[in-house]
Design a binder for these strands. Structure first.
Length: 548
DNA sequence: CAGTAG
DNA sequence: GGGCCTTACTG
DNA sequence: GCCC
């Protein structure tokens, strides 16, 4: 609170709608009734909508993020009382791109019919979005590199900047709340918001990575190695990935061979490469590996649904360009690959974090409008706090203690998202929409933002009891997951998206074959899984590199 | 089943 | 020298 | 390519 005051905010003892600009909700036991009461109203709905009610995380996150204007508009995340924002904004996502929509609707239908599932006829009403209309504008502004308008409208704009500046001088600005031992309704929300922040002392964008040049060079090499056929390059690529993870997580500049070799996952060979990069700025090996075939294979592997083998095969067939693939009669493309080619550039582009957030804030209220009791969270690199995201992973579940589940929700949600012009193409549909555990892959875009790109999006649904396993799994990163699962397997466990199982019996000759699947021993929360594996709990933004 | 994805 | 994660969907 |  002192922070707020020091930066020009003033505290008023008596609520006056003509004076008050923001209501910050602090504390876990602060129901809407209490707030309304303090403000002198009978109920929350009487508080003018022009005055936002925001959580303390709005301040805390903003301080951590520094200048990210769009962050402040990132929608419902900081809204203390969602119902207020629901009323606040009607859908402006009801138009746009009718052609794409009908195409996709038709496609969904045929796909579903083939699988003998009913696709409820969708001519339902408009979708209500909880995202203020300002969000798409903030995004387009951000993309064109302009510092955005929300500052103008925001009386606390100066405070944000000053607070952000202060944050970089003093690492932890968090002086109130935060005791995780305390249960209660606000725990989840608070915790998630806190985990999204990038105020970690370890890796991450704060201050930038001191070894970025090394990371870039090794990443280039990694990309080239990944394109080579056979299992050996794949293992080498995995090794490079681990070394790169290690470098990213290392807070200090590597100066010597010994420095490099001390990093986990870095041995003699990689340490030598690191020295070459430090001394010459580049790697001879990169030029050496960068043959024509590798370049073409890399191009083809950029297509969704095309891997090493297919790409190499097409190269051997004489194909050299994406156009070749479309015209060569010998090449048969899957539906997903066709989409992959059509939106090649979009799919291979990473999106700004704010765009992922904006898409999620469009999607979440639509899901909640189907069933307000749903658990809906954004996972992947977004949850790890990365500044840009390759795709959007959304996890859906539901506490069944009231006797209801999220069965059928995904189908309904997709239907509405297609109608809203948010989901535009499908890549892979779940085997059975009636299952509680499902996996969907497709493309989406911000509707009503001219020229918005197609982005990869995945929806995952899991039974409530597996939520912890799913959170862990779908938060990643990849290296961290593989490392953790490997450790589990060496300890006689097996870790997957459903949780941690004990008593797993593996085929001695092929360890990947499980003779006995064992019993789940931890799956409700991430913490219990860490504990069972004897790994110190790490919040999402620290989940890079694990080893051992 | 191999290939691909995450 | 042997291991390097695990499961689901696609055709 | 790294690690046990």
């Amino acid at each position: 609170m002192t922070l707020l005051l020091r930066h020009g905010a003033s505290l008023v003892p008596v609520f006056d709608p003509n004076v008050v600009t923001h209501i910050i909700i602090s504390g876990r036991d602060c129901g809407s009734g209490k707030v309304a009461d303090k403000a002198g109203y009978k109920k929350m709905s009487d508080v003018p909508l022009s005055i936002p009610t925001l959580t303390w995380d709005w301040i805390a996150d903003g301080i951590s993020f520094g200048k990210m204007p769009e962050h402040w508009d990132a929608g419902g995340k900081y809204i203390a009382f969602p119902e207020r924002s629901q009323r606040n904004s009607k859908s402006d996502a009801s138009v746009s791109n009718a052609n794409a929509r009908s195409t996709i609707a038709k496609k969904v239908q045929t796909n579903l019919e083939r699988r003998k599932y009913r696709w409820a006829n969708t001519s339902k009403a408009t979708v209500v979005s909880g995202t203020p209309p300002i969000v798409p504008e903030a995004i387009s502004g951000a993309e064109s590199g302009v510092s955005v308008q929300c500052d103008k409208d925001d009386p606390l704009a100066e405070f944000y900047e000053a607070a952000a500046a202060e944050h970089f001088e003093r690492v932890s600005a968090r002086e109130s709340d935060d005791d995780d031992s305390d249960p209660g309704p606000s725990k989840n929300a608070k915790k998630f918001a806190a985990q999204f922040t990038c105020d970690n002392p370890h890796p991450g964008p704060v201050g930038g990575c001191p070894n970025q040049d090394i990371v870039d060079q090794l990443s280039t090499l990694l990309d080239l190695v990944k394109c080579q056929p056979g299992p050996e390059p794949r293992q080498r690529a995995y090794t490079y990935s681990r070394a790169i993870s290690s470098l990213r997580a290392h807070p200090k500049r590597i100066k010597s061979f010994e420095d490099a070799k001390r990093l986990p996952g870095v041995g003699e060979r990689t340490a030598s490469k690191i020295m070459e990069i430090i001394q010459t700025g580049g790697l001879e090996r990169i030029k050496h590996e960068n043959s024509e075939s590798v370049q073409v294979v890399k191009l083809f592997q950029g297509i969704y649904g095309v891997g090493q083998n297919t790409a190499q095969m097409w190269y051997n067939n004489g194909c050299r360009t994406l156009e070749d693939l479309k015209t060569n009669p010998r090449i048969v493309l899957s539906d997903a690959q066709k989409v992959g080619i059509q939106f090649y550039d979009d799919i291979n582009d990473r999106m700004p974090r704010a765009e992922a957030g904006a898409l999620f804030e469009l999607i979440k209220p639509i899901a909640l409008s189907i069933d307000p009791a749903l658990f809906v969270e954004i996972m992947g690199s977004y949850r790890r706090g990365k500044a840009d995201c390759g795709d959007i992973d959304i996890l859906i579940s539901r506490d069944p203690s009231d006797g209801r589940t999220h069965e059928g929700i995904l189908q309904e949600l997709l239907e509405r998202l297609v109608q809203a012009g948010i989901v535009t193409e499908h890549l892979a549909l779940p085997g059975d929409f009636e299952d509680l555990e499902n996996c969907y892959r497709g493309l989406c875009r911000l509707p009503n933002v001219a020229g918005s790109k197609r982005r990869r999006i995945d929806f995952l649904t899991v039974p409530w009891k597996n939520k912890g396993g799913a959170l862990l799994y779908y938060t990643g990163d990849d290296i961290f997951n593989r490392s953790m699962r490997y450790k589990a397997s060496t300890m006689g466990f097996s870790l997957n998206q459903r949780g941690l199982s004990a008593g797993v019996v593996r085929d001695p000759s092929r360890r990947s074959i499980k003779l006995n699947k064992g019993n789940i021993v931890a799956s409700e929360t991430e913490e219990e899984i860490f504990k069972m594996l004897n790994i110190k709990y790490r919040p999402p933004h620290e989940r890079v590199t694990h080893f051992k």
